[in-house]
Design a protein around this nucleic acid. Structure first.
Lengths: 203, 203
DNA sequence: GTCTATATGTAGATAGAC
DNA sequence: GTCTATCTACATATAGAC
């Protein structure tokens, strides 16, 4: 069976458009008309493919945890040592979010609106978090780091990665940055954040 | 003129109710009906006091930067030395947000929706940020800290304070915390975060 | 599958009595 | 100043032709 570069079908165009609109405006702010426009169709057809707004939302994000964050959680599987794991995690997180800078704020928003709903995003990473905690315990046993709660450390790592994206409008305004300058700042942080963390926990 | 404990008037009840609803649901998700209900009045009266939703929103948050974040920015004015400033800032930030845990996410959300709108929240802190940067430069000149971009340091401080509130639904679910457990965690971070930062930058 | 046209529901806003 | 009732606008959703 020959695999050719397909024109994206209507359903895929809808999903892609809906994804962009939902992430930009959130569930509450998104408009079916806007999705239809971006997909190059009309509202009726949108409802033909996805009966209502809720189902469209789920169609876009259900089971998508793997695609959204898989590469980030998996970064823990590539490491056998804590400092290396930290470097890889931060790099994976920032690289992923540079592709879709509005994602962190969107996830936070929707988890706050409907805590049950996007739970899949969280549960998926359970195994990887366990693995991370073990790396911390091993580093502690080896005398490589000071005594620190692994969960606190993970919170700090995610905070240092995610916050600049969440607070992006504030930061860009304060420092008079454009999109390109923001990108450069995040690429610098890709190196400086692991250093910041490791300096803090090294024994 | 005797100052007595007044029953809150209608306008104040509206402002308080609107504030709660806006912060809980965001501008897009908030409903005038819900505000009216919480204020114990009807929609018509709401429009009598504030012509439309936009004006109600501005009535609640315009010029409120001082009330929202004043105590946080001012924390820099109490210190003559960097490490002390960091401790006070983190404590002030976390204490303030424990009073109103949804505020960080709300601000991020609305700044993203309308970057011009809540700019006052940002500009207000300009002088305090300058003061902080000077403290960093002095500490650097005194050989107390390693070479670090003061702006990056400030971003890290805000990240470590704000992120747990932004990601609160995720964290509470992952760790199976209730509200009280979350509060305890943040009170612990009130001490551990400054230590984390200072360990990282100390020369 | 895709469209035009329309129905239904809901939220914001106003009119007018008291 | 506060209410009931109503209007208008808009967003979601459906009917039905092609």
């Amino acid at each position: 069976m020959a695999v050719v570069q397909q024109e994206p079908g209507t359903e895929e165009r809808i999903l892609a458009a809906a994804r962009r609109v939902f992430i930009r405006k959130g569930m509450a702010g998104a408009r079916m008309q806007e999705v239809a426009d971006e997909a190059g169709i009309n509202k009726a057809l949108l409802h033909y493919y996805f009966r209502d707004k809720q189902r469209l939302f789920e169609g876009v994000f259900k089971g998508g945890a793997e695609k959204q964050f898989g590469c980030i959680w998996n970064s823990f599987n590539d490491s056998t040592e804590l400092f290396d794991a930290i470097e890889r995690f931060v790099a994976a997180y920032i690289d992923r979010m540079l592709e879709e800078p509005l994602l962190p704020l969107f996830i936070a928003q929707e988890m706050s609106r409907d805590p049950e709903g996007l739970r899949a995003f969280v549960d998926r990473g359970q195994a990887s978090r366990q693995r991370f905690i073990r790396l911390v315990e091993e580093a502690l046993a080896a005398g490589a780091i000071i005594d620190i709660d692994p969960r606190d450390l993970l919170v700090n790592m995610m905070a240092l990665c995610a916050h600049p994206f969440v607070a992006r409008p504030m930061l860009t305004h304060i420092h008079g940055m454009n999109d390109e300058a923001f990108r450069r700042m995040m690429l610098k942080r890709r190196k400086s954040v692991p250093e910041f963390i490791i300096r803090s926990i090294r024994a």
